[in-house]
Measured scan of single mutants.
Amino acid sequence: MIFPGATVRVTNVDDTYYRFEGLVQRVSDGKAAVLFENGNWDKLVTFRLSELEAVK
C-alpha cells in the first residue's frame, strides 16, 4: 500500500522517470503525486498507482 510520505520507485519502463525514486505527496483516484528532488530542482509528477512500487 502506498501512502503520503512513502518513498516510491517508478516501475513503468516506458516512462521518462523509470527507476527514479521520490516522495509521495498525495494519493487519490488511483493516482499518486510524487515529488522528485535533485540538487537545485524539484518536480511533482502524477503516476497511476500501478506504475509505482514502495521502496523498502
Score class of each variant (00 low, 15 high):
1 M>L: 13
1 M>G: 13
2 I>S: 01
2 I>P: 03
2 I>E: 01
3 F>W: 09
3 F>C: 12
3 F>A: 10
4 P>G: 03
4 P>S: 05
4 P>Y: 05
4 P>T: 07
4 P>F: 05
4 P>A: 08
5 G>H: 03
5 G>S: 03
5 G>M: 03
5 G>Y: 03
6 A>V: 14
6 A>P: 01
6 A>I: 12
6 A>S: 10
6 A>T: 11
6 A>D: 13
6 A>W: 08
6 A>M: 14
7 T>D: 02
7 T>G: 04
7 T>N: 06
7 T>W: 15
7 T>H: 10
7 T>A: 08
7 T>C: 13
7 T>M: 13
8 V>G: 00
8 V>F: 00
8 V>W: 00
8 V>N: 01
8 V>R: 00
8 V>K: 00
9 R>W: 07
9 R>Y: 05
9 R>T: 06
9 R>V: 09
9 R>G: 02
10 V>M: 02
10 V>H: 01
10 V>L: 02
10 V>W: 01
10 V>Q: 01
11 T>E: 03
11 T>Q: 05
11 T>V: 13
11 T>K: 10
11 T>G: 04
11 T>M: 09
12 N>I: 06
12 N>E: 04
12 N>Q: 06
12 N>G: 05
13 V>Q: 11
13 V>P: 15
13 V>N: 06
13 V>C: 09
13 V>G: 06
13 V>D: 05
14 D>N: 13
14 D>Y: 12
14 D>K: 12
14 D>P: 03
14 D>M: 11
14 D>W: 10
15 D>P: 02
15 D>M: 05
15 D>Y: 04
15 D>Q: 08
15 D>R: 07
15 D>E: 05
16 T>L: 13
16 T>Q: 14
16 T>R: 12
16 T>N: 09
16 T>P: 15
16 T>H: 12
17 Y>C: 07
17 Y>N: 04
17 Y>L: 08
17 Y>T: 02
18 Y>F: 09
18 Y>L: 02
18 Y>A: 04
18 Y>R: 02
19 R>I: 03
19 R>F: 08
19 R>M: 15
19 R>W: 09
19 R>C: 13
20 F>T: 06
20 F>P: 01
20 F>E: 07
21 E>W: 07
21 E>C: 12
21 E>A: 06
21 E>P: 04
21 E>Y: 09
21 E>T: 12
21 E>Q: 10
22 G>C: 03
22 G>S: 01
22 G>V: 03
22 G>L: 04
23 L>A: 06
23 L>M: 10
24 V>T: 02
24 V>E: 00
25 Q>L: 15
25 Q>W: 11
25 Q>C: 14
25 Q>F: 10
25 Q>A: 09
25 Q>N: 04
26 R>W: 15
27 V>K: 02
27 V>N: 02
27 V>Y: 02
27 V>R: 02
28 S>T: 10
28 S>V: 10
28 S>Y: 14
28 S>N: 09
28 S>E: 12
29 D>K: 08
29 D>L: 07
29 D>S: 08
29 D>E: 10
29 D>G: 10
30 G>H: 06
30 G>F: 05
30 G>M: 05
30 G>Y: 05
31 K>D: 06
31 K>G: 06
31 K>S: 10
32 A>L: 02
32 A>N: 00
32 A>K: 00
33 A>I: 14
33 A>M: 13
33 A>F: 13
33 A>E: 15
33 A>H: 12
34 V>A: 00
34 V>E: 00
34 V>M: 01
34 V>L: 03
35 L>G: 03
35 L>V: 06
35 L>E: 03
35 L>T: 05
35 L>Y: 10
35 L>R: 09
36 F>N: 00
36 F>G: 01
36 F>S: 00
36 F>C: 03
36 F>L: 10
36 F>I: 08
36 F>H: 00
37 E>M: 13
37 E>V: 14
37 E>L: 11
37 E>N: 13
37 E>F: 12
37 E>C: 15
37 E>T: 14
37 E>D: 09
37 E>S: 14
38 N>V: 13
38 N>Y: 14
38 N>H: 12
38 N>I: 14
38 N>T: 12
38 N>F: 15
39 G>F: 08
39 G>W: 08
39 G>S: 09
39 G>H: 09
39 G>K: 08
39 G>Y: 07
40 N>F: 10
40 N>K: 11
41 W>M: 11
41 W>G: 13
41 W>R: 08
41 W>S: 10
41 W>E: 12
42 D>W: 15
42 D>C: 15
42 D>E: 14
42 D>R: 15
42 D>V: 15
42 D>Q: 15
43 K>Y: 10
43 K>T: 12
43 K>D: 09
44 L>P: 06
44 L>N: 04
44 L>W: 07
44 L>D: 04
44 L>H: 05
44 L>F: 06
44 L>S: 07
45 V>S: 03
45 V>T: 04
45 V>I: 09
45 V>G: 04
46 T>W: 15
46 T>Q: 10
46 T>N: 09
46 T>F: 13
47 F>H: 03
47 F>M: 07
47 F>E: 02
47 F>S: 03
47 F>K: 05
47 F>T: 03
47 F>N: 03
47 F>V: 06
48 R>S: 13
48 R>A: 14
48 R>G: 12
48 R>L: 15
49 L>D: 05
49 L>P: 04
49 L>I: 11
49 L>Q: 04
50 S>Q: 09
50 S>N: 10
50 S>V: 08
50 S>M: 07
51 E>V: 05
51 E>Q: 05
51 E>C: 05
51 E>F: 06
52 L>S: 00
52 L>C: 03
52 L>Q: 00
53 E>K: 06
53 E>P: 01
53 E>G: 04
53 E>V: 10
54 A>I: 15
54 A>H: 09
54 A>R: 08
54 A>Y: 13
54 A>P: 12
55 V>G: 03
55 V>N: 03
55 V>T: 07
55 V>S: 04
56 K>Y: 13
56 K>C: 13
56 K>G: 12
56 K>L: 13
56 K>V: 14
